[in-house]
Design a protein around this nucleic acid. Structure first.
Length: 422
DNA sequence: TCTGGGGTCCTAGGACCC
DNA sequence: TCTGGGGTCCTAGGACCC
């Protein structure tokens, strides 16, 4: 059996854990840049607010005090998840942290007297120790555990176990096709056109038909819904194959220099992630575009890929190439909304192949690696960007809005003291 | 005025090889 | 009339996830 622990409205629940006066009142957490709502409390859902609703459409409700809101605070959410997984591990040691608010546990290697009771106990402990409510789904595989988890939110205990064919059938019949894990909006439309409304309808289709319509990933979902176990646990997260950083500007940018400054910051951010998994990248992709809601004649979108002569994780080299790429695609006259960088073709740094015509001499490269390690070390101690490249700028006028950011209650010393004092 | 960000996997089709 | 066959690698784009 597989156990899935998934937090309810996670970001909202975390904000409430530290600001109890937000409980029982409709509220939401905004996307980066405070652009739209990405997490909603149940009360907010009842008011008809949807995930993705833009901020300006909510303004009236916010002004009337009907709904509270916070900027997203990922540092805080990540740390809270770290605490939750630690607690889970005491109950179910074989865990895979799947996302910022979900954790799969494989319990097939263990014998438990009563798995459902064990789940109820775990749920209570997380609520008591961390203050975040979770739902727990238990089923023979991941896809079914997802369904059980969803159904757990309507039970009194917050735990739902699908361990018999009858319970599975009941669960599948209660699950609309677009709520099935692995079936996104595109396939859902196609399936509904075929008269497939629920997960149960879906598994009545012939397998060949599913394969043709939805490729092998669709077939995997199909087989899992039928009870087969097709997705192995991934206990150790593999290294990333691509690293991307992009943000919308605070307003719009029309000129190249501030866009270069923003891009340099994103590159530095991505390069740091690259080094932290001890990788180098062989290719970069830089893109810039206007708002997709602009009238069509004011819309522009372009990207430029650059293949690097030698794979690297040196921030300075990457910034130089990224800025070069941006200058190739920049066209004056548009109101740019976003610029971004993707680092691609990653490989371990000890497998770098030097170019036959390498212009970077090895000694210099070794020195640069030492310098980068020193910079990363200083920034880890004294704060992000304490030591930085001049092109990254100081004022950051383009930096995204975070008008109502909660404090980093658990990770910043002064905030921890404030909480204790309260 | 204003609409998020960061990933993965799969497939079709083109380029190229012998 | 009819114009080989078998394979690999790469990439763009589409689908999905949170």
């Amino acid at each position: 059996m597989v156990v899935l622990i998934d937090s309810n409205n996670f970001y909202v629940s975390v904000e409430r854990a530290f600001q109890p006066y937000l409980k029982n009142v409709a509220g939401c957490v905004m996307s980066n840049g405070d652009g739209c709502a990405i997490a909603l409390s149940n009360e907010a859902k009842q008011l008809g607010i949807k995930r993705g609703t833009p901020f300006f459409e909510l303004r009236d409700m916010l002004n009337q005090g009907k709904v509270w809101w916070r900027s997203s605070n990922y540092t805080l959410y990540q740390d809270m998840m770290r605490r939750i997984t630690k607690i889970i591990k005491r109950s179910f040691p074989d865990q895979e942290i799947y996302s910022i608010d979900e954790c799969f546990c494989d319990v097939s290697g263990h014998r438990y007297e009563n798995l459902e009771d064990k789940g109820v106990e775990l749920r209570a402990r997380i609520l008591k120790w961390v203050g975040v409510p979770v739902g727990i789904g238990i089923a023979p595989n991941r896809t079914l555990a997802k369904i059980a988890n969803k159904l757990s939110k309507n039970t009194e205990t917050g735990v739902f176990m699908m361990d018999t064919p009858a319970k599975i059938e009941e669960g599948l019949k209660a699950t609309e096709i677009d709520d099935v894990w692995g079936i996104g909006p595109r396939y859902a439309i196609k399936l509904i056109q075929e008269g497939v409304y629920t997960a149960w309808d879906f598994i009545q289709l012939p397998e060949d038909y599913v394969l043709k319509l939805m490729t092998i990933q669709g077939r995997r979902t199909y087989r899992e819904l039928k009870g087969e176990k097709c997705m192995p646990m991934e206990y150790d997260r593999p290294d990333k194959q691509a690293i991307a950083t992009a943000r919308s500007f605070r307003g719009f940018e029309r000129e190249l220099p501030p866009m270069e400054e923003a891009l340099a910051n994103y590159v530095a951010n991505a390069a740091l992630k690259l080094r932290s998994q001890r990788s180098v990248c062989a290719k970069i992709f830089v893109y810039a575009h206007t708002s997709r809601f602009a009238v069509i004649t004011d819309r522009y979108s372009a990207g430029q890929e650059i293949k690097l002569e030698v794979a690297t994780n040196d921030t300075a080299l990457l910034i130089k190439e990224a800025v070069r790429a941006l200058r190739m695609i920049f066209v004056k006259g548009y109101r740019y909304q976003k610029v971004g960088i993707e680092l691609k073709e990653l490989k371990p740094e000890n497998q770098v192949q030097s170019s036959l015509f390498d212009r970077v001499d090895a000694g210099k490269n070794e020195k640069m690696q030492k310098a980068l390690r020193a910079i990363d070390g200083m920034n880890a101690v004294y704060g992000k960007d304490t030591v930085r490249y001049a092109v990254m700028g100081y004022e950051k006028k383009w930096f995204m809005k975070q008008e109502y950011l909660s404090r980093k209650f658990t990770t910043r010393l002064e905030d921890i003291i404030v909480v204790k004092a309260v």
